[in-house]
Design a protein around this nucleic acid. Structure first.
Lengths: 350, 350
DNA sequence: TTGTACGCGTTATCAT
DNA sequence: ATGATAACGCGTACAA
């Protein structure tokens, strides 16, 4: 009957074959649908499989076939609203083609990044997706000879097994700053990201470009260093105030930084946006629920993740990858408005 | 010399043995440090390994040894500030013993949860960690006969290969509500979590207990349904207002719900905490940076994750697991204070 | 200490 | 259509 046996530890394909009275090859064929088998045998095999609750050993299968159906995904950290969205997109998109992602964090450490990739290769993953990453291009190129690699957030000289998906940080930062300028702001501070991070640097460039385009001129005194985290936003904002430099708006290198900055404003009794406008970058899922909802540069993070998944699959199948640009868009919510009537801060600079 | 060869696609242990002029088993022994080998041969082998940049095939190794050094981790979703902290703790703690976690989301779907676990078993993971999960205990017990399982956030009848780590939601919710009462609040609303979720139910119980202990009495009219997400918090809060029921404080089933609720308050021109106090649950990393910083019940999420990792490792090694309780603690920050002088909302109920 | 031979659970290449 | 048989890359008793 359909009485499932007490799930024995590990039934093998061979045993199933024996029970069903066929050869192992036939069972394998039925499992993989390689060629047609007679209905009778198929019936017998399927029944045996059900009876013993048999599950093929993925390891053995991979060893024999040379494919693991596994994609190594290297992220800086898994506990970040930003990276998590990428991972979610990747996981979802990888599901249909039957690939399993293996997420690993390198914790912002280049050495670990390198060793993790070697581990991926030792695991014989079919492909690797790297989120940002700090490895130089030559090493990436080298690794990509062992297994296809897709890098998100970087522009790379693409090859048959290597593809980079850049993100237009400059444009995004430019748009954000321009929005502030259009609202009437002239003194716009900027809280930057870590200097080791390309994205951070590019966003600084965009900020600067917008300023110069408007004839305002860039002034390093209004720029402070953050770390892409809330804590860095807090510290940077404090320093901005201590410095006594005047500003009516702050553009933050990412949303988390903006949250930190916003808290300092609150502590100092400054209203957002009435007293100070604030703009973030990324549009992390929670940003629309911040109080007030954050004006920010939206990256279609989830969709970028999906595209990356699609790209690595195509790379594996040796199909050409068409890397479409990801449009960034400014989402104007409620943390920006025209500068207040009263200059809230003593201004030493004018 | 030390000229690393062009990283040939896949050098095997056998080739290394041949080059070094020893037998495959010797190479294997050196790799695993099983027994001592003569310095001369070791030298030759290590050089060959370096020269060919050889990395053992993890698959073959697992197939032969019967161990994958892999832990399947099943989460509801990877993109949640709460679950992400758990995952981070797990990953960090698993690193030292040399295990690799494989994170998979079941997307709140019981069917998928089940199939994912079967996939884990097919992959021959050495153990499984389930974050919450909705599977009934009998199925868990059944699965745990194939591979050790640790379940976070549930109380289970522990066996030699099954351990559940409950979280004292009742106590936490009780403390939170009590804090509000101690501040002088009498009309305390509650935004619940999904009814399918045990945690959510238990937090409701704690809320109710505190109310009754204080002689206030529970009134279902002040309870609204959320979904543990910001959107649910928004909707629930709106309904609370539409209902026209008076309250001076809101206890939310988790932090994300609190953020949603807080936004509605802001939209209605109500100040937090002057007009309405608000308390969350979880103490997600960002909560200390919310504006204002959220008063909430702190779960040591990251550490719980670490403990879970330790537990599964011990289960695998057939060592006894000592499941210590996780102390929840109320973190009073800045969203709670004594009720305002003026009752802000029309109250139909008094 | 070192080498040989077999097994791990499948897939794949042959014949039949 | 089906069944032997040989890989796949490594660990490990067993023997030497």
């Amino acid at each position: 009957m359909a009485t499932t046996e007490p799930t024995s530890p590990s039934v093998t394909l061979e045993e199933i074959a024996r029970v069903a009275g066929v050869s192992p090859s036939t069972v394998s064929r039925i499992l993989n649908g390689t060629v047609r088998v007679s209905p009778a045998k198929r019936e017998a095999v399927e029944q045996a499989i059900a009876q013993f609750n048999y599950r093929p050993n993925v390891l053995a299968r991979s060893l024999a076939s040379g494919k693991t159906n596994t994609i190594g995904v290297l992220t800086q950290t898994i506990a970040s609203p930003f990276y998590a969205e990428w991972l979610r997109g990747i996981e979802d998109a990888l599901y249909e083609p039957g690939f399993t992602p293996v997420f690993v964090s390198s914790r912002w450490n280049v050495t670990e990044e390198c060793s993790r990739i070697e581990q991926f290769i030792a695991r014989r993953v079919d492909g690797i997706i790297i989120l940002h990453g700090q490895l130089d291009e030559s090493r990436l190129e080298e690794f990509s000879r062992q297994t296809p690699i897709v890098v998100l957030g970087r522009s790379l000289e693409d090859g048959p097994t290597l593809a980079g998906f850049p993100i237009d940080n400059v444009q995004g930062a430019f748009d954000a700053t321009r929005h502030l300028i259009a609202e009437g702001h002239r003194k716009i501070a900027f809280i930057a990201g870590p200097t080791s991070h390309t994205d951070a640097l590019e966003r600084l460039v965009g900020y600067r470009m917008a300023l110069e385009e408007a004839g305002i001129g860039f002034d390093a005194i209004r720029v402070e260093q953050g770390d892409f985290l809330e804590a860095g936003g807090v510290a940077a904002m404090e320093r901005l105030f201590e410095r006594g430099v005047g500003f009516t708006a702050v553009f933050c290198a990412n949303d988390q930084t903006a949250y930190g900055a916003r808290l300092v404003l609150h502590r100092r009794g400054l209203r957002v946006p009435e007293d100070i406008s604030i703009v973030g970058f990324d549009d992390v899922p929670t940003s629309q629920y911040a109080t007030p909802p954050l004006t920010t540069v939206r990256q279609p993070i989830y969709d970028i993740g999906r595209q990356a998944a699609g790209a690595i699959v195509r790379l594996i199948r040796k199909e050409p990858v068409t890397l479409s640009a990801f449009p960034l868009s400014l989402i104007v919510r409620e943390t920006t408005c025209a500068p207040g009537r009263v200059e809230p801060i003593v201004d030493f600079t004018s």
